[in-house]
Design a protein around this nucleic acid. Sequence first.
DNA 1: TGATTGACCAACT
DNA 2: CAGTTGGCCAATC
Length: 109
Amino acid sequence: MTESFFEKVYNVVKQIPFGRVTSYGAIAQYLGTKGSARMVGWAMNHSHSYDSGIPAHRVVNRNGMLTGKHHFGGPDVMQQLLESEGISVRNDIILNFSKHFWDPSRELL
DNA sequence: TGATTGACCAACT
DNA sequence: CAGTTGGCCAATC
């Protein structure tokens, strides 16, 4: 397997169930490197260049805040996508974030 | 080729 | 309690 770190990130993000969200740090922790959470965000930034089918909108920061909403082509696109999956977003923050939170290292194995 | 940055997180001061 | 620093990996300057 010659998959790079960000390729693994894409692999995990694709496995996020519908109506669920996760955090950059959770993915990084699942990969075994919590410090590379920034890398996850970077990978998401170029996710469209690797595979357009990556639900990057399901990945937010630890606070459930839509930090990278501006990278979806619009400041409200990410929120609309999340609400479209039944996730309530208010003030760029996911409501009941813990409820929709999907931890790859816990649910996925 | 060395230095800087990046959609982060946790710990330390 | 708020601001700073360290850490991780890869890409860009």
